[in-house]
Design a protein around this nucleic acid. Sequence first.
DNA 1: ACCTGAACACCGTTCAAGT
DNA 2: ACCTGAACACCGTTCAAGT
Lengths: 200, 200
Amino acid sequence: MAVSARRGQPLTLEEIYATTLRLVDAAGVDGLSMRKLAAELDVNPMSLYHHVENKEALMSGACAVVASRLRLPADDGAPWQDQLRALGHAYRSLARSHPSLWSYVNGHPNLVKQENTLWAVFNRILCAAGIPAEDLVHTRKVLYTFVSGFLSAETSGLLFELEGTADADSAFEIALDLIVAGLESRHSAVAGPPPEPLGR
Amino acid sequence: MAVSARRGQPLTLEEIYATTLRLVDAAGVDGLSMRKLAAELDVNPMSLYHHVENKEALMSGACAVVASRLRLPADDGAPWQDQLRALGHAYRSLARSHPSLWSYVNGHPNLVKQENTLWAVFNRILCAAGIPAEDLVHTRKVLYTFVSGFLSAETSGLLFELEGTADADSAFEIALDLIVAGLESRHSAVAGPPPEPLGR
DNA sequence: ACCTGAACACCGTTCAAGT
DNA sequence: ACCTGAACACCGTTCAAGT
């Protein structure tokens, strides 16, 4: 055989990550091992190390594949409240696409480095909400932890059932309501014109 | 020897959990194994199984020990805003007492079952905040995920430095500000003196 | 270039045996 | 009652060897 005794074609990163995600979705992160992954790919366990440095890099790559699928809402001129909610929904649908992976990375944040594009969109919306520049970074971080916390609880099944989504759906709306209301009352928001920085 | 060839006295659950917490604090949850714990206790690895069913039960017990140390603020008649903030701070100090354990349980929520007393205090405060009964459960769950998310990010070092706590401290105040403001504006609050819109 | 087998240093856990 | 040693079925990873 030219390439392998067991497979007709060489391994690719794409199929490695795709199979990783399939296994994690099926059996959770604890149910994934290099050896099981290799078996699923019909390959010797050690072959994986020719494509991926180690298990941590494998997980990190799988996270990057998922993160790249985030569909950031464009700036359509809608009120910042609507744009913030749209961003929240986009993020939530990403988390729900791979629940086990998501609840895992929440405890291993070094696995994924957030893309600048997400922060840029987030900043733009918070500016439109009238958040003063000096509070922008802290406010963004806090809101990020809020929705991460909700999604961690949701994807791990802690507080809301994963099956009947109606409960979690309405809870997420309440979460967004609270965030929007909090931002509105703390900083007199201005929908259309550019934000005016005001002290607190 | 009456009890053991290596130790003068039998193992106790107290020292097992205390040593578990010490190891987890020092090396993280991944740095803990039944074998290392046994070595630290100067005991055969298999002796542990006489006191604890398995590793999951060990972790669950350690979590219960920590959770039992939560000092719930009493109802002192203060405005609900202050009581809510006090509850948040009590919870945060618990999380920060064992950061590695805390960020671990966030992804393994089945390890710890929340005590009714926490929910009872939480409910009382939200009632004082004027949350209608039909929204109470959802609102409580959402707020719980918010602070859990913040503390998960803090204890895992994702967004805030663990060393200089000033950054995380002020971020937590912003988080509480946002929550209080969100509750105030959504439901006309009805407790004690009128709420003051600015936190700090 | 890509894959493999054997080997190493770890795991959690079971079980029969010791005192 | 409490502890132990040997053993089993797993891990991630290294390394020299194969094509």
